[in-house]
């Protein structure tokens, strides 16, 4: 059996358990305005927190006892992960977040587009950039002119 896979399963389970613990602890901070039914804004959070914690604990136990049940058999796929692609796409989204308010929607999105395409293995940088500029400009014009949504123009205020 693939031991590394079980480490990931265990981590996911513990993450769920942690969220459950957070919900249970933080629910105590919700101001209790007692309505006459006796069920205030804390009851459902306690229920959900318990559910999350129980599911997390059960999944963690299964991860320790030989892995989760009924997992699809694609260890071959998962053994060959392309983390460079993961990093490129993540960088694209984070850059978009940083740039959008400052450089504007169009420039930030062109950067995102080119990085994602690169992450998917494209080596045709010029083609990607041209497609990006056309698509993003069209989307910008449709959304700001036709649907009157406001998007930051940034460094291209003439558009």
């Amino acid at each position: 059996m693939n031991v590394r896979g079980h480490v990931g399963e265990l981590a996911c389970s513990l993450g769920l358990l942690l969220i459950g613990a957070f919900v249970l602890l933080d629910a105590g901070n919700i101001p209790q305005s007692q309505s006459f039914s006796g069920v205030g804004p804390r009851f459902f959070p306690y229920l959900v927190g318990t559910g999350l914690a129980v599911c997390g604990a059960l999944l963690a136990w299964r991860a320790l006892a030989g892995g989760w049940r009924a997992m699809p058999d694609d260890d071959g796929v998962h053994a060959r992960a392309d983390w460079r692609a993961f990093a490129l796409i993540s960088a694209g989204i984070v850059l978009q977040m940083v740039l959008i308010g400052w450089a504007g929607f169009i420039l930030a999105s062109v950067v995102l587009f080119v990085l994602v395409a690169r992450g998917f293995g494209s080596v045709r940088l010029v083609r990607d950039a041209v497609v990006a500029v056309v698509l993003v400009t069209a989307a910008y014009l449709v959304f700001t002119r036709l649907l009157s949504l406001s998007l930051p123009a940034g460094w291209l205020p003439f558009l």
């Binding site: 796409i89 694209g92 989204i93 978009q96 959008i100 999105s109 995102l112 587009f113 080119v114 994602v116 395409a117 690169r118 992450g119 998917f120 293995g121 494209s122 990607d128 497609v131 990006a132 698509l135 993003v136 989307a139």
Partner: peptide, 12 residues
Amino acid sequence: PLLYAGILIFAT
């Protein structure tokens, strides 16, 4: 590459 790049543009 173009398909998924486009999907992320519209997602963001």
